[in-house]
Amino acid sequence: MEDEKFSAFIDDELSQSEFDEMCSRLFSGKDFSGKDKGLKQKWQRYHVISDTLQKHLPEKVDYNLADRVMSELENEPVILAPNRVLAPAQNTFQNNAPNNNVSPMPTPIFKQIAGLAVAASVMVVAILVSQSFTTQDGVNTTAPIAALPTMPSKQEFARVSKPQTILATQQAALVTQQTTALAKPQMVFPPDFQNQLNKYLANHNQYASGVSGVLPYARIIGYTPDRPQLGYAELSHSELSHSELSHSQKADK
């Protein structure tokens, strides 16, 4: 019975009151029987099982995630409506109609540059807004290149990013590698370089040969602002099984 309830909790199928109760149990560390701290581990296990079934498993599973989340929670106030850091940047761009001069946001980037540069950067905005970026060898940042002109300062970003993580932990199912990445130190490009990099990326895309003729164009129109993001940046590929690969390598010798 309790197992079913827990399963429903993982699948987000509980009523609000049941959900709250389960959360408080999970956060207090007591099991259903109230005798040990197995609940956190159980929560972790269920998620690993569910991810395995859905083939969403990352290369490494962090078995201590729950504990780390708990210790973060203890040190932070609960903020029910944190500012969405990325939202203003995206909206600025969408509201970017030529007549929209009353926007309180900073000047949109494509008004700042001319000619070819405009074309290129608009194109890349289509691709880049809200993509996760990495700078300086592996330091993750959620700063999307194209949206940076309206990004908050580094300090603001650091301040907002922690509450975001906490919100995510309250919605247990949302705890993924990517949300934990939000809490890492933020690294952004030199502001002047954003436009330049956008242009380079758009320009390069025209030369991105590829076996698939349609791919460069799918890249260009591929971005939609509100599409849900999957948990992990890579899909595991069942088709490329190890046996198939080793077989092919042997054959090649």
């Binding site: 880049l128 700078t135 030199p190 330049q196």
Partner: peptide
């Protein structure tokens, strides 16, 4: 099959430097 673009541009200002890695997909 794979293509790589190399862009070279004179550095105009000090803060325009970009040294390191980045990625998009």
């Amino acid at each position: 099959l794979a293509s790589v673009s190399v862009y070279v541009e004179r550095l105009a200002t000090q803060n325009k430097k970009f040294i390191g890695t980045s990625y998009m997909g």
